[in-house]
Amino acid sequence: MPDVTDADGLTVGQVASRLGVTVRALHHWDEIALARPSLRTAAGYRLYTTGDLERLHRIVVYREIGLGLEAIRAILDDPTVDVPDALRAQRAGVAERIDRLQQLSAGLDRMIDAHERGLVLTAEQQTAIFGPRWDPDWPAQARQRYGDTAQWRHYAERSASRGPEEWRAIADVVVGFERALGDAMEAGVAPGSPEADRLVEWHREIFASYFPLTRQMQVCLGRKCEADPGFAAHYDGIRAGLATWFRQIIDASARAHGIDPDTATWQ
């Protein structure tokens, strides 16, 4: 490269500003022989000519549509490369990325909806799945009460990935559990017995569909099932006295695991 004065070309900084790229990028393209300045000053500074700028413009254009540097080098320097075919391949790749981004956007919408509403289901779908006694306003009410808890976040994250069929399967499991609960009480199963303990474990497994349930938390739920009028009416509607018996088998199981039900807290 001949030695020239600064007036004979553009410096790296000037080119970077003109093309909207970084000086670091220009240095890198020089190092890999993708776009080398044709001139240097007597002090060794790089200078870019008009021809250099034309090549750089093409590099910037191809880079902006997503081509890698080696693909750009092939298009610029390899006469055997079919440029339209290379661009069609790039377009196909872009279309795939757009599709993935659209799926990601839809997933984000569902996650936001789940965190805000609890169930990503219409009111009609909720009633069809959970029965005519279900109130579609319950998830929103639960969010108002528990929306700042870790359990609500777990629940929302699981809810976002579930459609009607998944919720229907969970609802069927819950119905089966409650039927077994009522049958066990009616059959005289004693709290603390192996059969009662299996029901308690089954209850914890079901709740894992919503959020992880510790034994202490389960004790708190057992209390709520007995003390809350709405919950008590639900369980006692299955079998008279079931709400209290359910709380009793949970307490007995907790004691067997070293937990005092009287002092258990939501943790």
Rank of each mutant, 00 (worst) to 15 (best):
M1Y: 05
P2Q: 14
V4I: 12
V4W: 05
T5S: 13
V15F: 00
S17E: 15
R18W: 09
A25S: 13
L26P: 02
L26K: 09
D30V: 03
E31N: 13
I32W: 09
P37H: 01
S38Y: 00
R40N: 04
Y48N: 02
T49L: 02
T50N: 09
T50G: 14
G51L: 07
D52F: 00
L53T: 06
E54A: 14
R55P: 07
R55N: 07
R58N: 10
L69I: 14
E70N: 10
E70K: 11
D77P: 05
D77R: 10
T80G: 05
D82I: 00
R88G: 00
A89W: 09
A89E: 14
R91F: 08
R91H: 12
R91M: 08
A92I: 11
G93L: 12
A95E: 15
D99C: 06
D99K: 12
L104I: 10
A106L: 12
L108T: 04
M111A: 15
I112N: 08
D113V: 00
D113I: 00
A114G: 01
Q126P: 01
T127W: 01
I129M: 01
I129H: 02
R133V: 06
D135Q: 08
P139T: 04
A142Y: 08
R143S: 02
D148Q: 14
T149S: 15
Q151D: 14
E157R: 12
R158C: 04
S159R: 05
S161L: 15
G163W: 06
E165M: 09
E165L: 12
E165A: 15
E166N: 02
A169Q: 14
A171D: 11
D172A: 15
D172R: 11
V174H: 01
R179T: 13
R179Y: 00
L181K: 03
D183H: 09
V189L: 06
V189K: 05
G192N: 11
P194G: 11
R198L: 13
V200T: 11
H203M: 13
F207G: 03
A208H: 14
S209N: 08
Y210P: 03
T214A: 12
G222F: 03
G222E: 05
K224G: 07
E226L: 09
E226A: 12
D228W: 01
A233W: 04
D236Q: 04
A240G: 13
G241N: 09
T244I: 06
T244A: 15
W245P: 07
F246C: 05
Q248A: 15
I250L: 13
I250N: 03
G258R: 07
D260F: 11
D262W: 05
D262R: 14
A264N: 07
W266Y: 07
